[in-house]
Write a protein that binds this DNA or RNA. Structure first.
Length: 274
RNA sequence: GCGUCGGUGGUAGAGUGGUCAAUUACAUCAGACUGUAAAUCUGACGCCUUCGGGCUACGGGGGUUCAAAUCCCUCCCGGCGCA
């Protein structure tokens, strides 16, 4: 008998957090965040992290548990989430997995196993100098099976596959998509125009807080490069503070980027619609 | 007013007689996704098509040429210089 878990997903700015709190109150649940940016400590305003007050007494997990100075990965998330879910269930409560990072949700629900191969900075640096063709050739020698499923135009993926293959000698087979829990999916969304308006309104309400937050993070030692890689609010905030963008350019570019992100999220979640 | 440089697809911006429906970037639309996933990557992107091709397009009009976004004339618009 599989245990029950509820998933609240959907694109950004659809009110997932509020919905999850409401639901948790009704069914005596606890919320587990599935958000690749809210996982970091100090990324609050820009990531739209729920505040203590908004939690209204409902326990929340996996918010602000990683350092933004270090790289955090799905594999780590998966481990933490598993542990948390087990804990919640053991106390007789219902876990509510809530967030917009499809990959994270996927990793938890479908019990994906990730190979124990850590990032090798030296190897990555070396490989990043190679062309796509050379990388493909390398992977072909190391693990021809993986080559069949990989996106041969995606350098980042190729490098990771080679990294795994050259350490383990092969790339572990993709685990089957077998659901671990009996999941109840709740997908939140709005028509395009409405969602665009919500994104716009939220951005303007938060823009001040965003720049002060990014300033603070940089002072605390998070590099511009890292901030730019964090994307959206952090990328545009960092570009603006470095004077690489005007305020106007930041606002326009960021709003556009958030919309593009929302659509990518939709694309991901469409998979589950069937 | 004279001179001069320029007006190209949603935008920026290449091209300067044929191989141009027009490099490229951005935007837009669709999609992928097993260790950075708010990241990274892919495809489509004038209109029509029986997928062979057809049609309309590089400010407007006229012309030269077998052939023009590319050359000439003229008109309109913008920048700059001289008045």
């Amino acid at each position: 008998m599989k245990q029950k878990i509820i998933i609240v997903c959907g694109p950004t700015a659809t009110g997932k957090s509020d919905y999850a709190v409401e639901l948790a109150k009704k069914i005596d649940g606890e919320v587990i965040s599935a958000d690749s940016r809210q996982i970091y400590k100090g990324l609050d305003i820009g990531s739209g992290k729920i505040t203590k007050k908004e939690m209204r007494g409902v326990p929340h997990h996996l918010l602000g548990v990683a350092s933004p100075k270090r790289t955090f990965s799905v594999a780590q998330y998966k481990k933490l989430a598993d542990k948390t879910i087990k804990d919640i269930l053991s106390r007789g409560k219902t876990p509510i997995l809530c967030g917009g990072t499809g990959f994270y949700i996927d990793a938890v629900i479908y019990d994906q196993s990730f190979p124990e191969v850590k990032a090798d900075a030296k190897l990555r640096k070396l490989l990043s100098k190679l062309s796509l063709e050379e990388l493909v050739k390398k992977l072909k020698n190391l693990d021809p099976k993986r080559l069949k499923t990989i996106d041969t135009k995606n350098k980042v993926r190729l490098i990771r596959a080679i990294e795994i293959a050259s350490t383990l000698g092969f790339v572990p087979k993709k685990s089957k998509r077998k659901p671990l829990y009996s999941a109840q999916w709740i997908y939140l969304d709005f028509p395009d125009e409405v969602l665009k308006q919500r994104i716009h309104a939220r951005l303007f309400a938060r823009i001040r807080g965003i720049t002060t937050e990014v300033t603070r993070l940089h002072k605390e030692g998070v590099s511009w490069k890292k901030l730019e890689a964090l994307g959206l609010e952090y990328r545009y905030g960092a570009l603006f503070l470095q004077k690489k963008l005007t305020k106007q350019e930041m606002l326009e570019g960021l709003e556009k980027a958030i919309w593009q992100y929302a659509k990518r999220q939709r694309t991901w979640f469409k998979k589950y619609a069937k």
